[in-house]
Design a protein around this nucleic acid. Structure first.
Lengths: 145, 145
DNA sequence: CGGGCATCCGGCAAAGCGTCGGTTATACCG
DNA sequence: CGGTATAACCGACGCTTTGCCGGATGCCCG
């Protein structure tokens, strides 16, 4: 794979926010001809720097509840917990972290009741020592792809 | 905003993985004419269900460091902090939450040094009372994208 | 039964795209 | 120093895709 120059970075920066703008517009913004831009984009796609294009879907189910579960385990690592978490589609992400805590579990559930259910299931797992539930009240900034 | 039917969901499912396929191809897969598909996609964009299209960038993200910053404010809400956070592109997401904590700030930085710098900047903000840094060691589950 | 409404289709003109030959810039080496 | 190979750029050509329109079809409700 070749090195990326400044114009390639410009292309990536623009396409990562607006992936469907016409090549003509993109070419204008980075200061190249349409065909040169076309070739650069094609190269970026072929080399794997651009892995694909995704539509950014807003929440179609507006009343979803998001929460962070801060988990302390009795002993790390504990694969049993991860296996169990992986079973629930409401679990969006699990991160192992530094510090006293061990895991941050991010969940999206249709209701508070469901959140409580999920919370209890996880909290009663044998290798979970402590669990704090943080419900998301508002998304102040959202730049996740 | 209208209700989403099965074909709309099909469209979203396909576009969320391949946002740049031709309308003709998309129409073929969901079993509608090209023009009808075009109108549906346009409606989904206009109503905000499709918020935009993003290029999925691969290579450069490999050695990024992710971290959660757990922030306690002196008084909520404090718009000043959010304004400042929004200035840094490394800040991926900020959530207001329940409990003793006030904000969970998610960041992605190129180095630990940069993380410390960012941490110090935020911690010294006048309305930040307390700040805990949790560095992500490993992503055990990832279903965000 | 018969409008009103939403959704569908096919076709046309315009815009977008990949590709090509020709040109310029840079780097390399006898 | 001159010649040549390489890479990147541009403009143009022809094909594909898109946006938009008129008209057909199905459904609801008075």
């Amino acid at each position: 794979m070749k090195e990326l120059d400044a114009k390639d970075r410009d292309i990536l920066g623009i396409l990562s926010k607006e992936a469907r703008i016409p090549l003509k517009t993109l070419a204008g913004r980075i200061g190249l001809s349409r065909s040169a831009t076309s070739e650069r984009v094609a190269a970026l796609e072929k080399s794997g720097v651009i892995r694909g294009y995704r539509a950014d879907i807003g929440q179609m189910d507006t009343n979803l509840v998001s929460a962070f579960l801060l988990v302390t385990l009795v002993s790390t690592p504990s694969m049993g917990v991860l296996d169990q978490l992986a079973r629930y589609s409401e679990v969006r992400r699990v991160s192992s972290i530094t510090g006293q805590l061990d895991l941050i579990v991010e969940v999206e559930v249709p209701s508070i009741d469901r959140l409580n259910t999920l919370r209890d299931i996880i909290a009663t797992h044998q290798s979970v020592q402590d669990l704090t539930t943080l419900i998301v009240l508002r998304r102040d900034i959202e730049r996740v792809a």
